[in-house]
Amino acid sequence: QGDIVVALYPYDGIHPDDLSFKKGEKMKVLEEHGEWWKAKSLLTKKEGFIPSNYVAKLN
């Protein structure tokens, strides 16, 4: 089961498979690959890669 993270900063995706998000948006982490994680937005239901240093895990 994936962790839920919250965006600390907004992110505008650079690549087509990036997931753009707004500050405060919550996402479910699907896979962790070093600095880039695959996640699904709980708001938009879209999936893509996010920079892990832009988010914090919720406990």
Rank of each mutant, 00 (worst) to 15 (best):
K40I: 14
D17G: 15
V6D: 01
L30N: 03
M27V: 02
S41Q: 03
E35L: 14
S20D: 06
K46L: 12
Y54E: 03
W37T: 08
H15V: 05
S52V: 09
L58D: 08
K45C: 15
A56W: 09
E47H: 07
A7G: 08
V6H: 04
G34E: 05
V5K: 00
F21K: 01
Q1C: 14
A56P: 01
Y9V: 07
S52A: 14
F21E: 01
E25R: 00
Y11V: 02
K46C: 10
T44P: 01
W36K: 12
K57N: 07
L19F: 04
L58C: 12
E32C: 14
K38N: 05
S52M: 11
S41P: 01
H15T: 09
P10V: 07
N59A: 13
E47Q: 10
K38G: 02
K40T: 09
W37I: 14
I50E: 01
E31T: 08
L58H: 07
K38E: 05
N59L: 12
P10F: 08
P16R: 08
T44S: 09
V29Q: 01
A7E: 03
E32V: 15
D18C: 13
D3S: 14
G24C: 10
D3Q: 14
E32P: 07
S41H: 09
V5F: 10
D18N: 10
E31G: 08
K22N: 08
D17F: 13
L42S: 03
E35N: 10
K22F: 07
G24I: 00
K45M: 15
N59M: 11
K23P: 06
E31W: 09
V55D: 00
W37A: 07
H15K: 11
A39F: 01
G34H: 05
K40P: 01
L42M: 09
F21I: 03
G24L: 03
W37S: 07
E32H: 11
K57I: 10
L19W: 02
N59H: 14
Y54D: 01
A56T: 12
I14E: 10
L58G: 05
K45Q: 14
G24N: 06
S41M: 05
I14Y: 10
K38Q: 07
G13M: 06
L58N: 06
F49N: 12
G2K: 10
Y9G: 05
V55N: 00
L19C: 03
M27L: 12
E32I: 15
Y9Q: 10
A56M: 14
G34C: 07
A56E: 12
I4V: 10
K38H: 10
K22H: 09
L42N: 04
L42C: 13
K38S: 06
T44M: 02
G13R: 06
N53D: 10
K28W: 15
Q1W: 15
E31L: 08
A56K: 13
